[in-house]
């Protein structure tokens, strides 16, 4: 148990975000991840197909230029943006918060 007030509850995912996203081939996909009470933890995105780390905080680790992290300032939304989507982009994506143990939210992307 933690001694800091709030450390037991946060961070929390906003459960209202879409967990199943469908996009047309060639269009831009936006995968949303809203996290409250983030504190000093980091939000990262991972692609499950090959366990590729895509973004870490505001840093885009993936060299594929189609991937970017969009963090709109006043909101708590860490959006993974995938431009010019291709069929092979379909699959499971994980938004992960760096607590110990980590906490995750999963989004399935369909490209049609």
């Amino acid at each position: 148990g933690g001694s800091l007030a709030g450390s037991e509850s946060g961070p929390l995912f906003d459960s209202t975000t879409e967990r199943n996203v469908t996009v047309l081939v060639g269009r831009t996909a936006n995968l949303h991840c809203r996290v409250r009470y983030l504190g000093n933890r980091t939000v990262s995105w991972i692609r499950h197909r090959d366990v590729h780390i895509l973004t870490v905080g505001r840093y885009t680790y993936a060299s594929d230029q189609r991937f970017t992290i969009v963090k709109s300032r006043p909101t708590e939304d860490w959006t993974l943006q995938i431009k010019f989507t291709q069929a092979r982009d379909a699959g499971l994506y994980e938004c992960q918060v760096s607590t110990q143990p980590h906490r995750s939210q999963f989004i399935r992307l369909n490209v049609v």
């Binding site: 990262s44 991972i46 366990v51 992960q96 760096s98 980590h102």
Partner: peptide, 11 residues
């Protein structure tokens, strides 16, 4: 990354 649990360790 711990590839079974997907826990990111370091960059």
């Amino acid at each position: 990354i711990k590839s079974d649990s997907k826990a990111i360790q370091a960059i």
